[in-house]
Design a protein around this nucleic acid. Sequence first.
DNA 1: TACGGTTTGTCAAAGGTTTGCACAGACCGG
DNA 2: CCGGTCTGTGCAAACCTTTGACAAACCGTA
Lengths: 342, 342
Amino acid sequence: MTPRTKPATLKDVAEAAGVSISTVSRVFSSPGRISPETSDRVREVARRLRFTPNVMARSLITGTSPNIGLVVPDISNPYMTTLLKAAQKVSRGHQTGIFVADTDDDADIEREVCEQFAQQSRGVILCAPRMTASHIRELSGIVPLVLVNRIVEGIPSVYTDSRSALRELLDELVEQGHRRVGYLPGPAGSWSNKQRARTVADRARALDIELVRLDPTDGTHADGVLAAEQVLALGITAVMAFDDVLAAGLVEGLRRRGKSVPEDVSVTGHDDILSELVHPGLTTVTGQSARVGQLAILRLLDSSGPVAGSGPEPGVLSDESVGVKATVVRRHSTAAPRTRSD
Amino acid sequence: MTPRTKPATLKDVAEAAGVSISTVSRVFSSPGRISPETSDRVREVARRLRFTPNVMARSLITGTSPNIGLVVPDISNPYMTTLLKAAQKVSRGHQTGIFVADTDDDADIEREVCEQFAQQSRGVILCAPRMTASHIRELSGIVPLVLVNRIVEGIPSVYTDSRSALRELLDELVEQGHRRVGYLPGPAGSWSNKQRARTVADRARALDIELVRLDPTDGTHADGVLAAEQVLALGITAVMAFDDVLAAGLVEGLRRRGKSVPEDVSVTGHDDILSELVHPGLTTVTGQSARVGQLAILRLLDSSGPVAGSGPEPGVLSDESVGVKATVVRRHSTAAPRTRSD
DNA sequence: TACGGTTTGTCAAAGGTTTGCACAGACCGG
DNA sequence: CCGGTCTGTGCAAACCTTTGACAAACCGTA
């Protein structure tokens, strides 16, 4: 039912075209060293024979591989799937395959898959918000790394820079009249969570309003639902959540307690991944995951050297960490606080 | 900053252990042919040298690869991410990497990535609901395929079998008093959509109630929102949507028109992927995507032969298509229709 | 004609592994 | 003591490609 005949090799093409194997090889790998006539003839024959260079053999001798790995804590997060899609769009055409691994934030698995990918890819895009910096350094000794959404000295990274957007968001809440704002934290130890918490806290201090840091969560929807109780107990009128998932959970939790958003409580999210699914539409901050994915993979593809970082030129963009500016997306989950006796 | 020293090879281990290369190779690839003492000594040395067999070299000579590919129309669909997670859980330990490609249902891209993956993987899990059967057959000539959620004669496949669950769901709606039920279709040409539409239609006929087939959609949330108008115009009291995304859209569309679910209209979904995110919780049908992913990858891993399907034993499960029974998940999006003059 | 320089193409080694075949030694029954 | 089987190991070819070294051919020029 499925013939699957053995694919053509350099040798087949060489024989059919009446040249040597190396000539055929050079036609594909170092063009310019072969005369146009020969080149054309060889290409024609190759096309006819459906020849495609054997990736394994090529990788074996060059010591590089066309593939790249994507290692994330949770691939079901839309932030990651859009990142993946964007990365894939770039990689297509480079005949670069993308390995994907979901680690559940488990350091053992992270190490395991990085080792596994190391052999078969030129680098790994690693998103590991809770991994220790030293652990990350260790991994970078196994395979070239580009970090996503965290910064570790000496290792290239790409991240969403939402600091100014968060400040803007808080400013707007205060302008609407909120004086007691909550921050609903994401997973403890997460680099992004620390960043966002600090940014919001700093701004609150500058604006001289009260910022309540709610109990830590694991970042799940259920955690958001639970947080509603605390929000109501503390008389908070606006909550900035670590991300959209928590924000959506909080909205649901408030609803279950008979409160509505934004009339009773204003809620904002982060990442813009649930725009259409929750009601009311969440005011949030763009995650820029597509751009992040694009940049991350470009950095890996550009560093075209062999797999062992031997050369003195370790790639154009090198160790730098580049931030992608996020912006505020205004929808319908914030409003002026209910006028009370206060 | 990143040393990345060249990894140990068979030769290194052989020299250090004082045996030949082939002995070391056999210790790992055909155990039993080497005496326990030698084997132990070699393993010890290999561990000390951090030796791991070079996948490229191995693949080159055996003609197989440990990897597998996953080709889907839209990786952001939670059905696919849970499928991926389940597949990955199985593949871990087999040191099998998973390539992921998002095709946007584009036949050209589908072909392109299948060709790309063919060289570097032992098989591809293909989800291509709208691709023509002959096109699929053609691809199966390039690389071993396991189809997801569709059946093509002669090609192994795994699918969610929700026929009985859908019948059960319709029965319950009728029991609640609904007499005019709508079916909100998914993407035209989708195999699953045809299946579900037919199942529901057949059952409706058997129950002697009226089934209204709503206008075709592309399966997006926005399509669901739009469908609300038609639903209200036709005086339908319950809608079975192709999947949860459409169902969620429909719920939102109804809300925008001032109608609420389930009081005004009952809505059911399919796949159970948005359980927590929409309100009210959707009554739906389990997608069983985890089980589907598990089975799909097992079939690929089991068919352990070389990449060219030469052997007379093409794998244990062979051409069969296996269905995973889905079940009804009852939440809060259905209720008895509003009692009217009727 | 001879000669340096350039272009075009060939030769052969290398990359790390698997595996058919050969071989050495042990053991055993005759 | 000999021929046989069995077990454990080594040799070398093969998988397909890239690439440095080199040969051949050609050009214009001295």
